[in-house]
Amino acid sequence: MKKIFILVTILFITVSLASCNFEDEKEFDIENPTRVAFLTLDILDILSDVGFEKTNIKEMGMLFKGEVDYLEEFNNDNVIDLGTHRALNYDEIDKLDPELIILGNRTRSFKVELEEKYPKAIIYDATHDISIGGLINTLDKNVEFLSSVFPNIKSDLENKFNTIKNDINELKGQNIDVSTLVIVLSGQEPRTNGKDSRYGILYKDFGFKVASEEYNSSDSHGQIISYEAILEINPIVIFVMDRSSTVGENEALDFDSFLNNTFVKETDAFANSNVFLLNGDAWYMTSGGFISARAMIKDVETFLVK
């Protein structure tokens, strides 16, 4: 009886492992798809940068159509609007009948539902926790995926990635280990985001120093901070991500209002012109792409070349 139990257990484990391997391979078991649903923008950012026309894609749909300036080439009648991360447009996905559906951080929760609706499609979850792995690691994984799906652009992908990686490492080597606070403007109150947040790229990849362990939140929405606390921390550098303006929130706190606050004006960062506005599209909408990575590099360079 004991031998039978052991044998059944081994068979169960073997089948389970085989199933897991099949799922892992299935995600990459496609080359040069012609119909693709982009439910994350970082992958589309990369393809746009290397030359979308080099792929074999004939029909495509995307989230947030027309909302990111540097993806303007896709704001035309040939590209299907698939809605937003809060409300996918399934009618349009049905019309597209995609061979490949690419998910990201904001859409990974739809995976099971999409698998049920589109059983013939390959569904790839391109979610890479940028708050943990950092920017370079995320780009590396995106390049690996795209190289397997579009092998004809592999060298282009790798060359551009290596250039970006070298540029980031070069900046990190320029002694920018200075006290830095990342502020996100969302709603009516400023929030801080720490080393293990989506804006932790500034600390992990570029080498800035966390200004306050008390205000070092990893929460995706950040940690509310008072203006008095900002002055008390008194960082050397303040990077501001104006989420409100990026997503079109009306009557919300914006960058100019933040700069005009009495307590902010008393900080060393303000006195030395070290309060910088980050590129909202790059840091909030498409982080993990090539175009966005270069925009991030440019944002960091504003501090170095000031």
Rank of each mutant, 00 (worst) to 15 (best):
R191S: 10
I136S: 13
F110G: 03
M1K: 15
S109E: 12
G280W: 00
K3I: 10
F276I: 14
H85A: 14
L135G: 11
I93S: 11
G207P: 07
E301G: 08
L157T: 02
K172R: 15
K58A: 07
F12E: 00
D24T: 09
T302K: 15
Y90H: 14
I176T: 07
F206M: 03
S220H: 06
E189S: 10
F38R: 07
V237D: 12
T246H: 06
L171K: 03
N279C: 11
V112F: 14
T302N: 13
R106P: 14
V184W: 01
A121S: 15
A229G: 01
G83W: 10
L41P: 00
T107W: 12
G207N: 02
L103H: 08
D97H: 09
E25D: 10
E31I: 14
T127K: 15
I201H: 06
I6D: 00
N32S: 08
E189M: 04
P119L: 14
I176N: 06
A271W: 01
Y70K: 00
L181Q: 11
L17W: 06
K172F: 02
G248T: 10
G248S: 11
N216I: 11
W283D: 05
V143G: 04
Y118F: 15
E73G: 03
G207I: 03
S197W: 00
G51D: 03
D177Q: 08
N193G: 08
V15G: 10
G248Y: 10
F150D: 11
S212N: 07
Y203K: 06
F276P: 02
L63T: 10
G66V: 05
E249C: 00
K160T: 12
N142D: 03
D196H: 12
Q223E: 14
K141W: 07
L100F: 11
G207Q: 10
I57Q: 05
E266F: 07
R108T: 12
K298C: 02
V240F: 06
I43F: 05
A211H: 02
L71T: 01
I30V: 14
K160R: 11
I225F: 13
F12R: 02
G207L: 04
E249Q: 10
G173H: 01
K209V: 06
A252N: 07
G61I: 15
E266Y: 09
T34N: 04
K141V: 13
T163P: 01
Y70E: 08
N137L: 12
T127C: 13
D24G: 00
D177N: 14
Y284I: 09
S148M: 13
Q174M: 10
F161T: 01
P190F: 07
N137C: 09
V143Q: 04
Y215C: 04
S155T: 13
S155Y: 06
V182Y: 05
G187V: 08
E99A: 05
T34L: 12
F303S: 06
R198V: 12
D91M: 11
E228C: 03
L47D: 00
D242K: 01
F64M: 06
D219T: 09
E213Y: 02
I297T: 05
L44V: 03
E72G: 01
P151S: 11
T180P: 00
L11K: 02
F110P: 04
R198N: 14
L135N: 09
T40Y: 02
N166T: 09
L82Y: 11
E170M: 10
